[in-house]
C-alpha cells in the first residue's frame, strides 16, 4: 500500500498521446480507433462485473439500447453529440435499473444466460419493427458539436476527440469507484458472498450498482458507435455474437487495470482487420488461432504484460 497508484496518471498520459496522435494518423485509423475505444467502454463495464465474478453474455442489450436511443432521437431531430451520448447512457441506465431488480438474483452461467435471453428479446423486438427497418436498420445523420456541423475529416476527428475525452472520464471514474469501499467489495463477493453479507453489506445492492454502471458504459459505447458508423441495425448491435465479442475482449484484455479494456479492444480490432485484409477466406481461422494463443500464453490477459508478477502474500 506504500507505493503510489499510477493508474490515473498512465490513463491521462495514454489518452493525451492518443488524442494528439489523432491529428497525425490516417483517417481510417482514427475511425477504427474511435470504434475500438467505444467498444472499449463497453468492455470496461464488463470488467466491473467480471471482477465480481459475473459475466454477461447479453451486454449488447445496453450497447444496442444506447445506439437505438441515439437513432430514435436523430429521427426527432436531436443531433448534439453531448446530448446524444447522454441520452444513450441514460436510456441504458433506466433499463438496467429496472432489470437489475431481477437479474441480481442470478450468478454464474444463469446470470450469463438470462442476460443473453434479455438481449435476444430486444433483438427480436427490433427484427419485428418494420418501421425501424427490421434487420436492415436505418441511417443516422452525423452529430453536431455544440451547434457546429463538421464534415469529412474534421467530423471523424471530432468524433474521435469526444470519444477520447469520454474514455478518460470513464476510466477515471471507474478507477475511483473500484478504489472505493463499494468497489473493493468486488472480489470479496466473487470469492464468498456470505462472508460479505456478514460484514453487513447487501450483496444484491452492490451488484445492482455495478450492473447499472456497466450498462451506462455500454450505453455510451453504443451511442458513440451509432453516431460514428451512421447506421444501426439489430444484427450488429444486439445479436448474441456481439455480446460474445465483448466478453472475448474482456478476458483477452485482463482485469488488472481500467486501461486494459481499451488496449484489448484496439488489439482485437487490429488483428481482425488485418486478418480480413490478408486472409479474406480464412480470417476466422487466423483470428481464432491468435486469440487462442493469447489466452494460453497470457492467462491473465494482455494487461499482464504490463504488471510484474507479484508473489501472493
Amino acid at each position: 500500500m506504500i507505493e503510489k497508484d499510477k493508474t490515473l496518471r498512465t490513463l491521462a498520459i495514454a489518452v493525451a498521446i492518443f488524442a494528439v496522435a489523432g491529428f497525425f494518423l490516417p483517417q481510417w485509423a482514427v475511425f477504427m480507433l474511435t470504434l475500438a475505444l467505444a467498444k472499449g467502454l463497453v468492455v470496461l463495464g464488463l470488467l466491473i462485473l467480471w471482477r465480481t465474478g459475473l459475466l454477461s453474455f447479453g451486454h449488447a442489450l445496453f450497447y444496442c439500447t444506447g445506439g437505438y436511443a441515439v437513432g430514435l432521437a436523430g429521427l426527432w431531430g436531436l443531433t448534439d453529440v453531448v446530448a446524444l451520448i447522454a441520452l444513450g447512457t441514460v436510456a441504458s441506465i433506466l433499463l438496467a435499473f429496472a432489470l437489475g431488480f431481477l437479474i441480481t438474483r442470478y450468478r454464474e452461467i444463469y446470470f450469463a444466460m438470462l442476460s443473453m435471453a434479455f438481449s435476444m428479446i430486444l433483438y427480436g423486438v427490433l427484427v419485428k419493427s418494420e418501421v425501424l427497418g427490421s434487420t436492415d436498420g436505418f441511417n443516422i445523420s452525423p452529430p453536431t458539436f455544440l451547434g457546429v456541423k463538421l464534415e469529412g475529416e474534421s467530423l471523424t476527428l471530432g468524433n474521435y476527440l469526444v470519444t477520447c475525452l469520454l474514455v478518460w472520464a470513464a476510466g477515471w471514474g471507474v478507477h475511483r469507484y473500484l478504489q472505493s469501499t463499494m468497489g473493493h467489495m468486488s472480489i470479496g463477493i466473487r470469492d464468498n458472498e456470505i462472508r460479505v453479507e456478514y460484514l453487513g453489506v447487501s450483496v444484491r445492492r452492490v451488484i445492482h450498482v455495478k450492473y447499472v454502471i456497466a450498462a451506462a458504459l455500454a450505453g455510451a459505447g453504443g451511442a458513440i458507435s451509432a453516431m460514428v458508423v451512421g447506421h444501426i441495425d439489430p444484427d450488429s448491435m444486439a445479436y448474441w455474437t456481439v455480446s460474445g465479442e465483448f466478453v472475448f475482449v474482456t478476458i483477452l484484455a485482463g482485469t488488472g487495470s481500467v486501461v486494459a479494456p481499451f488496449l484489448g479492444s484496439i488489439v482485437f480490432e487490429l488483428v481482425r482487420t488485418y486478418a480480413f485484409q490478408y486472409t479474406p477466406y480464412t480470417w476466422q481461422l487466423i483470428l481464432g488461432s491468435t486469440l487462442l494463443l493469447l489466452i494460453l500464453i497470457l492467462p491473465d490477459g494482455l494487461w499482464s504484460l504490463f504488471t510484474r508478477r507479484k508473489a501472493r502474500v
Binding site: 460474445g244 478476458i251 476466422q284 481461422l285 486469440l291 487462442l292 489466452i295
Partner: peptide, 15 residues
C-alpha cells in the same frame, strides 16, 4: 476462460 477457448476452437473449425 474455458468457454473462450472453445469459442476460439469454434472459429478455427468454421474455417
Amino acid at each position: 476462460i474455458i468457454v473462450l477457448v472453445t469459442y476460439a476452437a469454434f472459429l478455427i473449425l468454421e474455417d
